[in-house]
Every structure is written in structure tokens, then in C-alpha cells.
Design a protein around this nucleic acid. Structure first.
Lengths: 335, 335
DNA sequence: GCTGGCACTGTGGCCGCCCGAGTGCCAAGA
DNA sequence: TCTTGGCACTCGGGCGGCCACAGTGCCAGC
């Protein structure tokens, strides 16, 4: 498939189909694009494209629409992701810069992306890799109950109450607190459980059981901090996209609600040289998303942001928006 | 409208319409319900019901469907909310009992309710009223930067970094910490900002600026803890409900995404003696939910849980599920 | 290899038709 | 006064035929 004009025709078909949402014929093609050849020639090329499985005709005598493979070829053909316009970039910056906390950043980001793309946006919470322990607090609640609080550098504080077999003296509590702090402050979250196991093992008998219990609790909090969460917005956009042509809304909504599935899907997508990854139709395996397309990219150390929409989507714009948002997200969370 | 048989007929119409999803006629009614009268009599009563605006005929000669007012009368007619079955209750208990933290409780609850009702479930985060301060921690990060952490009894820990003009000695920091703790531990979150203002005002000059800064930060964290958040699940159920008859999915999804609007709507709904509140169709004002119904109830001090679905929903079951879930939620969060 | 021309072919809209479900009304009976 | 069986009436929806249109495939000529 290295026939330049045929690629151009495929491109024109995809663009027109995305734009007008109906099968496009040879005549309309020569009218709307400066192809420099007649409709008869276009017809011949279209027959060839159909032969290659890039486009298909819904019925004998109507225009053609792209197949999954056609969209794929079209997307691969896009050399570089075009940057967003100045005003758009400023709007993103303004919106994200005055977010209060991490939840607020996620919320604003996902809404922004949904609005920019007019599709469903999905943003994974930042991955804990690279996040270290800023502080751990151990507070006596009385009656042998101890509150442990883990404060990581990414702001996702976690806390838990630990019940000890035997209450601790205040001095013992302070010593325990000091030992825990010494063991984990500044360490990566992923290293915390092991570090605390070592700490507990190296603690003298009177304090040992408490050290083990508290250590285990903090370790669990650190592990839980690497939790996989995501936020989503723009589902109402699906209703619009779904309105006219196939792509039934139900399966897609179901897939989106299964956060585990979505997160795995996102994590599987490897972005290419242009900085984005695209999955089209059946490339998402058989399943609820087999009539949809996903455009995603990474941000920060190893988290993902993406949008889900109909295969008939404006790929260049969507790719641009996803990449731009991911970049701002990286910048904000890095600073 | 105190004609017993007509009320019975209205009830039968609502039930059949909910069940079969198509207009119900006089013949079908006498076939499916033991009304003890002939179809002609039913026809007369139906004409009377239509006269009263409780039912309407989509076209001249098809069966009747309930109007908003008809559903309202039907719902008001329900004397008591029937309890859930034993297995259902056990399932709820099992599922919610081993939730890890507050986020997990919310997540599990909303999914559960969506599944039970086969509709869209909405759960507001517990209101901060009644929540008190369990602990406050003040940690020196060096270079005049201080980390303050607020730990309320509801588990929604909040934290912030405060930058002081002049660094504090360790002894000063300890004193400040003690003063803050003394001022707020055990107090309601809503009382925290004022209490800390008083604390700061009553602090001697050398420590005063730091006390003011830290006090303000903790006060802000406490106020922010009363934030209005909600979780949602089951949007895919909308697609099914929406499939056959009116109620377009788009507007409803839009309304659901506007958390502010949903939260206000929920807060406006006053539950009645049966322990639930129902809003039907245009009772939700003109707007995106004017073709939908909302069933809600409160839990805990003053938070809400509810479901959104088509007017043609199984009110008795939905009301039962909502109330049951709210009760478990109250119990779990209370303990 | 491109082009104009031509015959061909489904789709969708439109019309007319009929069937059936369900109604409203009426007159008779309890 | 309420109920009942009967009857005429009325739409909606499904079906078949028709036509126009858009778009194709193919062919002969340049």
C-alpha cells in the first residue's frame, strides 16, 4: 500500500466520514477535495482500497466507510501530532494551575479533556513510583489503640487505627515513633513494607509486638497508596456520539464502569514516537469496546490519561488534546 | 379521589406498565388482575382516571399509561416500604462490613445500590456534622516549612504545608503543637476555625505569627473537610432503561455529571414518614430530569443516598433498596 | 493510466391498504 | 345508581408496491 493517491483518497474518506457521518461516494470526494482526477478514477481506487480491506460499502450502492484497518492506516499516516492553539493552551494552564489538591487536579483535568475532545475522558491517578514518605505519625488514642498516619509526598495521606495487645507507655510510643520514622522517611513507598519488617525484626522484645503491628499497618498503608484509581467524565458525550450510527452506548458504559478493566487497557497501550497510543475497534479485543476507539498517553512516571469515543472520531484533534493535557499534568505534578 | 376501585385500577395500570413497558388496556387489566368487574366498567373508571389527569392515552386507541401525577398517586398510596429479603440483607451486610476505608465504603455502597435497583445510584459523602477532630499533627520539614495534618474521626485525613516567615525551634514547635491540640481535639470540625482563631489570638508574641499561620491552615482543612462530594455508579443501567421508551439518555447523563446540581437536588428532598423521598418527572423542575424519577433518603447525620431512573420504575422495590442501603450505611459509619 | 458514459442496483421515502387493539357510548339489567 | 354486553369507531403499525436517487462497476476511447 504505497500508492500515494490512494492513501490520499483514504484520508479524504476518513475525514469526510468523520465530518458528515455518512458513507462517502466518489462524486462527493472529488467535489470536496482537490484530488486532480475524475470520479471514475476515484472509483477505481476505491475499489482497490476495498480490495485491501481499508474501506467497505454498507450496501451495494452507497458510499464507502472506513474499516478498522482503514482507520488504523489513517492514524499511522499522521506524521506528527499538531499542537493545540494558543488560547486552548492558555485555558488549560489557567484551569489546572489553581487546583487545590490532587483530587482537584484529577477532577479538573478529566473534565477539561472531556470538554476539549467532546468525548469520554479517563484519567488515572498518578502512580506512586517516585513518591516517597514525607512523614509518619503515631498517636496514642488510649486503651491500647494507636492511630498511624502515613504522609507521602504526593499528598494522598492514609491513616489507620491499630489495636495493640498491651498498651504502651508514652516513652515507648515515642521510641517506636522514632524507629518508624528513621526506617522510612524519605524512602520510596514501595520500599516501605520491607523496611518496616526489618525495623520490627531488629526491635528489642518489650517493644517488638507493637513494632510489628504498627510496622505492618504502615506497610499496608504504603502498599494501598499505590492503589489504582481513576476518574472519568463526559459520559454524556457518548450519548451524542452514539445517537446516529452504531456503537451502542450500553456496552461502552459498562466497560467504563469496570475501572479495573479500563486501567489494564490503558496500561497495555504503548505510546509511539508521536507520544500517543491509539486503539481502534477490534484492536481492543472482542468485547464492549470493539466498536469504539481509545486514544491514550502517559504522564508522570507511569500513569495514563486517555479518551474513549466512537471509531469515527477526529483523531488528529483528539490526539493533540490528549497529549497536551498529559504534558500539563506531568508538569503540574512534577512541580 | 377516594374511589377504592379506581385507585386499585390505577395501581394495576402502573404495575403492568412498569412490567410490560407498553400501554395497558382494559381487557388486559381484567385478565391479569382480579378486579371483579368487567372490562366495560374498567373502561369507565379509566375514563374517570384520565379525567383526573392520572393516566393518559398515547393515541386515541391504545391503552393508557400513567402520568407524572398518576405515578405520584401510586407512590403516595404505598403505605409502608417493604423490607428486603433475608438473603439480600445478608449480602449487603457482608459486602459493606469488610470495606477498608471511607472511600471503599462509598464505592461499594454505590455499586451495590446500582446493582440492587438496576438503576443509577448516587451516594453523597458523609456530612461532616458530628465529625470531630481526632488528632492534629504538626511536623517540621526544615527551612521554616511545617506540615500540618488534620485527622478527623470520619477518616478523611487532610494535610497541608505551611511556610513560616521565621523558622521555629523544636521546643517552640512542640509548644505550638500542644496548643493546637488542646484547642481542637474532640471538637466538631465546624467549630475548629473559630477555636483556632481564639488560640492564635491568645498566644504570646514570639510564637504568635506561627500560631496564626498554622491555625489558619488547620481551620481551612477542617472547613474543606465538609466538602460536598458524591460517587455514582450504574450509568450503564440507564442505557437499558432508555432503550425502549422515551427518556433520552443524554440529558440524564449530563445532569448526573453536574455533581453540584445533583447534590442540591438530593438535599432538597425531604423524606416522609416512610423514610424515603420520591420525585417524579416534572417535580424535578423543568430540566434534564423532567422525564426521570429520583428516589432518595438520608443516612447518618444529614447525608443522602438515592437512585435515578425512568419514571417507569419499580417504586416499591427501589424504595426498599434505597432505604435498606441507607440504614446499613448509617450503622457502619456510626460505629 | 485516465476519462466520460451508461446500465445497474439497493435504500429510503411515500402511498395506500388492511388488521387489530382498544376505546366511547348506549341501552338494558340488577 | 352502578354494572354490563354490545357495537361502531378510530388510530397505529405492518406490508407491499412504487419511484427517485445516489453511487457503483464496467467499458471503450483517448
Amino acid at each position: 500500500m504505497n500508492h500515494p493517491r490512494r492513501l490520499q483518497i483514504l484520508q479524504a474518506i476518513v475525514e469526510d466520514y468523520v465530518h458528515f457521518r455518512e458513507p462517502v461516494g466518489s462524486k462527493a470526494l472529488v467535489d470536496r477535495h482537490r484530488l486532480g482526477v475524475s470520479s471514475a478514477t476515484v472509483r477505481n481506487d476505491m475499489a482497490a482500497l476495498e480490495e485491501e480491506g481499508l474501506i467497505t460499502a454498507p450496501h451495494t450502492s452507497s458510499g464507502r466507510i472506513p474499516t478498522d484497518k482503514g482507520y488504523r492506516t489513517f492514524v499511522d499516516q499522521i506524521a506528527a501530532v499538531k499542537p493545540l492553539s494558543g488560547p486552548e493552551r492558555r485555558a488549560i494552564q489557567r484551569l489546572l494551575d489553581d487546583a487545590a489538591d490532587i483530587d482537584d487536579v484529577m477532577e479538573r483535568t478529566v473534565r477539561l479533556l472531556a470538554q476539549l475532545t467532546q468525548q469520554v475522558a479517563v484519567v488515572q491517578y498518578p502512580h506512586a513510583s517516585g513518591v516517597t514518605v514525607r512523614h509518619v505519625e503515631v498517636v496514642d488514642l488510649g486503651a491500647g489503640r494507636v492511630l498511624v498516619v502515613l504522609i507521602p509526598t504526593n499528598g494522598r495521606v492514609a491513616q489507620r487505627v491499630v489495636v495493640l495487645r498491651t498498651p504502651l507507655e508514652e516513652s515507648q510510643l515515642l521510641e517506636l515513633r522514632a524507629r518508624v520514622l528513621a526506617a522510612v522517611v524519605g524512602r520510596s513507598l514501595t520500599a516501605v513494607p520491607d523496611a518496616l519488617a526489618v525495623m520490627a525484626a531488629g526491635t528489642a522484645p518489650p517493644l517488638q509486638p507493637a513494632a510489628a503491628a504498627v510496622g505492618e499497618a504502615v506497610g499496608a498503608l504504603a502498599a494501598g497508596g499505590a492503589e489504582h484509581r481513576m476518574v472519568m467524565a463526559g459520559t454524556a458525550n457518548l450519548a451524542r456520539a452514539t445517537g446516529d450510527f452504531h456503537l451502542s452506548i450500553g456496552p461502552v458504559l459498562e466497560a467504563l464502569e469496570e475501572q479495573v478493566v479500563m486501567l489494564r487497557l490503558l496500561s497495555e497501550m504503548e505510546q509511539d514516537a508521536r507520544g500517543v497510543a491509539v486503539r481502534i475497534g477490534t484492536e481492543n479485543a472482542e468485547g464492549p469496546l470493539s466498536e469504539a476507539a481509545v486514544v491514550a498517553t502517559g504522564y508522570g512516571p507511569q500513569s495514563k490519561v486517555g479518551v474513549v469515543g466512537p471509531m469515527r472520531m477526529d483523531y488528529p484533534s483528539t490526539m493533540a488534546a490528549v497529549r497536551a493535557v498529559a504534558r500539563y499534568l506531568s508538569r503540574i505534578l512534577g512541580g
